[in-house]
């Protein structure tokens, strides 16, 4: 009898199919993903039954920081109510985020300098260019040049430390639209002015498609209240949010939206 020869089988597994599947999955995730925008502080929005989606373009987001949740700070409320603003333009280049941010900054700085003639803020072209790249910011005008000269990591670190008095856009209870505005109101006025200007000047000499885009931007910011979204934590006291509402009302931006998460009708609260 001859010896039975045991065939040695190779243990290699064909990974081609597996690779196909993973590439497909990867493509899916790449196409559907919208990246989380970096925000200086995390807030948990309350939930609501409203099913309207947050628009992805032509949006001004006002973020209100919540009190300290980590329990590390002695006075948890000291970091509460700091304001941050983010401008998002159209996905198209006509009114890209960069362009909108540049326009807003120029307008806001000119209003600020008009009101603070003895301590004007001067920004170099490079600093303005830096500003157009920042998604969300929240520093007073006086700190703006210093803030814009920092490197990206330093900037995040600086803005992330909410205990500093230099972080957060200053706000108070001023109700006089024509008088000396607080810095938050200056930004709101800049939004108002820029929207008006775009609507008035740039409508001429544009083709129908571009005009529609102007109308979109103007409508979002001014009329339908879809262009301004207030984002606050569910545990933030109403008095803090009310101050922001009050300032928005003073600046005649009394149509806006509140960011919420989704819940079903049956649940009482989140």
């Amino acid at each position: 009898m001859g010896k039975v020869k045991i065939k040695r089988k190779s243990t290699l597994i064909d990974m081609t199919a597996m690779s196909d599947v993973t590439v497909l999955l990867l493509t899916f995730f790449m196409l559907t993903s919208t990246f989380l925008q970096k925000e200086p502080t995390i807030v948990y929005t309350p939930s609501s039954v409203s099913e309207e989606k947050v628009p992805t373009n032509n949006l001004v987001t006002i973020l209100i920081s919540s009190s300290d949740k980590s329990g590390k700070l002695e006075n948890a409320a000291s970091v509460e109510g700091k304001l941050f603003i983010s401008f998002t333009g159209d996905a198209d280049s006509t009114f890209s985020s960069e362009k909108i941010r540049g326009m807003m900054l120029e307008e806001a700085v000119s209003i600020y300098n008009d009101q603070h003639k003895n301590a004007p803020v001067r920004l170099t072209n490079q600093q303005v260019a830096e500003f157009t790249k920042i998604n969300m910011f929240g520093v007073p005008f006086s700190v703006l040049p210093e803030y814009l000269s920092m490197s990206i990591t330093d900037r995040d670190k600086f803005q992330g430390d909410l205990t500093q008095p230099k972080v957060g856009i200053p706000i108070d209870g001023n109700k006089n639209r024509e008088g000396r505005l607080n810095e938050f109101q200056i930004w709101l006025k800049a939004i108002y002015n820029v929207a008006q200007r775009i609507n008035n000047e740039q409508c001429e000499g544009l083709d129908a498609e571009q005009r529609a885009r102007v109308q979109n931007l103007y409508g979002a910011l001014m009329r339908q209240g879809k262009g301004i979204a207030v984002k606050a934590d569910k545990d933030t006291p109403f008095t803090v949010v009310e101050l922001v509402f009050d300032n928005l009302q003073t600046m005649k931006l009394n149509k806006f939206s509140l960011m919420t998460a989704l819940k079903s009708e049956d649940e009482p609260t989140q």
Binding site: L36, Q224, K226, L262
Partner: peptide
């Protein structure tokens, strides 16, 4: 690895908004 990265970095759930109109001040 790439899939894991994308899964962690994406937001599938988009926030909703609640529209509100306040009277003038």
């Amino acid at each position: 690895l790439l899939i894991t990265f994308f899964m962690l970095c994406t937001t599938m759930i988009k926030s909703q908004t609640l529209q509100i109109v306040l009277p003038t001040n």
